[in-house]
Computed example of a mutant assay.
Amino acid sequence: MRVVFLTFLQASRECSFFSVSRHPVMSKSGALDLASGVGGKIDKKEVESAVKQYEKYHVCYGGDEETRKANYSDMVNRYYDLATSFYEFGWGESFHFAPRWKGESLKESIKRHEHFLAIQLGLKRGMKVLDVGCGIGGPLREIARYSLTSITGLNNNEYQISRGKELNQLAGLSETCNFVKVDFMKMPFTDNTFDATYAIEATCHAPDALGCYKEIYRVLKPGQCFAAYEWCMTAHFDPKNESHQKTKAEIELGNGLPDIRTTNQCLEALKLAGFEVIWEKDLALDSPVPWYLPLDTSHFSITSFRLTAFGRFITRNMVKILEFVGLAPAGSERVSSFLERAAEGLVEGGRKEIFTPMYFFLARKPLS
């Protein structure tokens, strides 16, 4: 079986699902890249047990919100060790959604979404900027090139940081962009360090929004701004509705979240942290193309094929084969499975309008 599969793999290298990245600045794009990355810094023999431990934190497997909040650092680290190679395989270097115009590709909308943040923050050459929860640094690199700023990416996952440093070097940005491994609830920076801060679908991992926003407030210079895209439950979410709760739980399971806050809770936490809110809005409301369309099973796209139902079906079975022949660690298919549930939960949340991944706000730290 192994010999037959390897022969098939060799013959299929030009197919986008099986090819290995050849261009040095591109994201890892092939099946072997995906297989080698599953588990991140976790020993490959321990991947399956890490998956089981991660699942235990969530409601779907008997876990509870308080346990997730108490162990958020371990939970989020396990999640990104397990899921990052899948994200990079499907999304590229920027792991986030975006409002999208008709006729616009997903990749184009993601870049525009990142540029929008830079414009709102008024980023200019020479400014010192903090990216809170930077992933492997896709947005960081795009915003740095667009605004000519120096950006520090903050991340608590060693695997993502090592991957980000590799991509920074290949993109020629190692001198102006760097990474710091740290919990964003306990930043190692002195007060009033940064000219601007932003977070893209990242501070939703914080167990306490107020505590997280207070840290961001502390390291930001007076008079300067913080902008973010937050994952939130909307005003349409009914905590007494079992269907709504099930959708929320599936999103939390598949995305390493301790608890998804409402837009009002985020707004209140910002104000309590000391910020002046300049403006805020759920940008999903004005998106001509639904933000969840790339994951919708009824949608087919060539430009974002790997995210479609058929693309995910191929990925799931490809991972199953790679695990069977020993090219992917045991537990890889299980990771693919809970990410699949997350996609289903996100689409349901979007259709019901009870969840948004792009609640935007721009807030200023007062001068005094």
Rank of each mutant, 00 (worst) to 15 (best):
L173D: 14
E175P: 03
T176M: 10
N178A: 12
V182N: 12
V182W: 02
D183H: 09
M185N: 13
M185W: 01
M187R: 01
M187P: 11
F189N: 08
F189E: 06
N192R: 10
D195P: 01
T197H: 03
Y198N: 02
Y198P: 00
I200T: 13
T203A: 13
C204V: 12
H205F: 12
H205W: 04
H205G: 01
H205R: 03
A206S: 15
D208M: 07
D208Q: 00
L210D: 00
K214D: 06
E215A: 06
E215V: 09
I216C: 00
I216M: 08
R218A: 09
L220A: 04
L220P: 03
P222I: 13
G223F: 06
G223W: 03
Q224G: 03
C225G: 03
C225V: 06
A227P: 02
A227V: 05
E230D: 15
W231N: 09
C232F: 02
M233R: 08
A235E: 15
A235I: 07
F237M: 04
D238A: 07
D238M: 08
K240C: 11
K240Y: 10
N241E: 09
E242T: 12
E242H: 05
H244C: 13
H244Q: 11
H244G: 10
K246T: 12
K246F: 06
A249F: 00
E250N: 13
L253I: 12
P258F: 09
D259P: 03
D259C: 09
